[in-house]
Nucleic acid binder design. Structure first.
Lengths: 356, 356
DNA sequence: CTGAAAGCGCTAACAC
DNA sequence: GTGTTAGCGCTTTCAG
């Protein structure tokens, strides 16, 4: 059984309003887009006709004529990741203010999906692109730059002098995390990675090694466990950790999810956090405040990041970038909570001594 | 310092391709949209010209001409809520398959924001609307139905005979939750609500009362704590719980977040879960498997729900609905994990006896 | 300050 | 099978 007449509502066109108001379509258009340039009386006449008819301009026709879509494409690796969802909120807030709409390009961690969004850009369905991916999506044949659209990279930097970057200070924060752990007396460290191929992971690991060096340690003083930015990566890291004889006591995880997975798993083996092992996460997702114990982590200014990135894109579209907009790097905040603490047994030697 | 020449890439139009291939624009258009109706040789000629020129049709012009936008609006209460994010994934999967794009309408729990999306529908920027809100968004002056667009309600039902509903069996599952707790020997119950004004909350609470009745109890045998669908609602409920003399032992929370908040807070007071109190959540978010103890909860088939809803909308747009599509109600799955267990002290009396 | 008219780039009748 | 042509609904010169 099929239902008919979805299109039953009669469409009001600008010509209808013009007729109703006794003016030309040009005047109606002017009243709606540049009210100042029309006599008050005409203006009122037209507005009355608009109200009476319930006229709403057909946005597709507007787009075709003005060559502006008032839409922006946001390409994100995975929307169910709270980090991206929160950035999107900031983007949305800023864009809405400027009258722009959002078209979501959710890759859902599958790179095949990006082709679709390249085509979307190429077919001019949007006026600009926000990339949370850390790379330029491509098509097989072409990449997104060929659209000629303004593009802004957020969250993960892209090395292209036409693309402004709006990111957080990953590297600095991660370095600081290690120094924080070292300051608590930790001497052996662990690094739970994020998706190994991602730029973000790369930056964080770089910051980690910088921190290790800055605290006077070397490559032999830490272990690294690899895996994507998910809970199970932390669990897998914990499994490996549990098999070690000379376990690290200061663990940094490149995202909160894996920090939480790690902690959950080792606590099942009656390892105490933070008395036996300190763990520090990254992101500051809401859930990190509801774990046991609550997670020490770096909070990313996600909402602000979203707004800043959208703001830069707006400037790019409107052609009024200033040099200071080209590279924005927002600071993180250390949330000192309950999964980090001073080392009780300073190192392997003293551990042996105390247990004799 | 402003950058110029974003539009430097020269736009190729269908006429360019036609000239290049030595055919008319109509033929180019045909090759691209109905290849069967063109001679093989012409087809190849055109495709070669398309390839050489890198032509991509201007989608705005197509939309204007065909009066189809190939976009769908999805209005969601809050995208950072993992439940909606996951539904959106399902929607995306289905819509992508049909060649449709998604325009996100994220209300971010602020009803003022819906006006924008009503206008978007009214100005025909989309071919259909998916509502995760449980109500029809409005504008002050008009509501979304006046767009005449096909609308499907997902997740929360809307009572309108033009709007198909695609939902989960909230009520049945909640009823089952109570019966499950009763089956474990619980005699006093607690209900941690979700946003009191929402349809979903209403359905779940209704199921809860049905369950209470079915298990042979009455309104005096449970307490209800109100609050939105967030962690802190559970915390607040726990505070109230802690002040009670005659505490319930079987708690149902209308979402996992509040279940988790509740458990966290009472464990801080050394109340044991599930030995002293059993808690059962709702949703089955990923986190619920990483809490301590892991949360017993009902898993919603969110991805499937998203797909099903999008599928119904596609059918509506293409005018081939069958009656069975009008109301879809997907079942939930009980995940029996570690926050529920048998009552140790059956009731207040036996509790007194055993502590003497 | 207002109107007439020319398209924006494409598709779909309708002819041939 | 293919070409010609008339719009889709709007904005924006250009005249007046």
């Amino acid at each position: 059984m099929s239902r008919k007449s979805w299109r039953s509502v009669k469409e009001i066109r600008i010509a209808d309003v013009a007729r109703l108001a006794g003016v030309s379509t040009a005047t109606v258009s002017r009243v709606l887009s540049e009210p100042g340039k029309v006599r008050q009386k005409t203006h009122d006449l037209v507005m009355e006709a608009v109200r009476r008819s319930g006229y709403i301009p057909n946005s597709t026709a507007q787009k075709l004529r003005t060559r502006r879509t008032m839409n922006v494409l946001v390409v994100a690796p995975r929307l169910t990741n709270p980090v991206f969802a929160e950035i999107l909120r900031g983007v949305d807030d800023e864009l809405t203010q400027s009258g722009y709409g959002i078209i979501i390009g959710n890759l859902d961690n599958r790179r095949e999906r990006e082709a679709r969004y390249v085509e979307l850009a190429l077919s001019r369905q949007v006026d600009g692109v926000l990339l949370l991916t850390g790379y330029i999506p491509e098509n097989g044949a072409r990449d997104m730059r060929e659209s000629g659209l303004p593009i802004v990279a957020m969250c993960a930097a892209i090395d292209d002098d036409k693309i402004p970057n709006v990111v957080v200070q990953d590297r600095e924060a991660t370095r600081q995390a290690v120094e924080y752990l070292a300051g608590l007396g930790h001497r052996r460290f662990g690094y739970v990675s994020g998706t190994p191929t991602s730029i973000i992971e790369h930056e964080r690991f770089r910051g980690f090694r910088e921190g290790i060096a800055a605290a006077g340690f070397g490559p032999d003083d830490f272990v690294r466990w690899e895996g994507p930015f998910v809970f199970s990566t932390g669990v897998a890291a914990a499994e490996s950790f549990l098999t070690m004889r000379d376990r690290p006591t200061g663990i940094f995880a490149a995202c909160d999810e894996s920090a939480i997975g790690f902690i959950k798993r080792i606590r099942e083996e009656r390892i105490r956090v933070p008395q036996d092992v300190s763990v520090i996460g990254f992101d500051g997702i809401e859930f990190s405040d509801y774990t046991e114990p609550t997670l020490t982590t770096f909070r990313q200014p996600l909402h602000e990041l979203g707004r800043a990135g959208a703001d830069v894109l707006m400037k790019l579209i409107q052609n009024d970038m200033s040099p200071g907009d080209w590279d924005i790097r927002l600071p993180l905040t250390l949330l000192e909570r309950d999964t980090t603490g001073p080392v009780l047994h300073k190192d392997y030697k003293s551990l042996r001594r105390s247990s004799i």
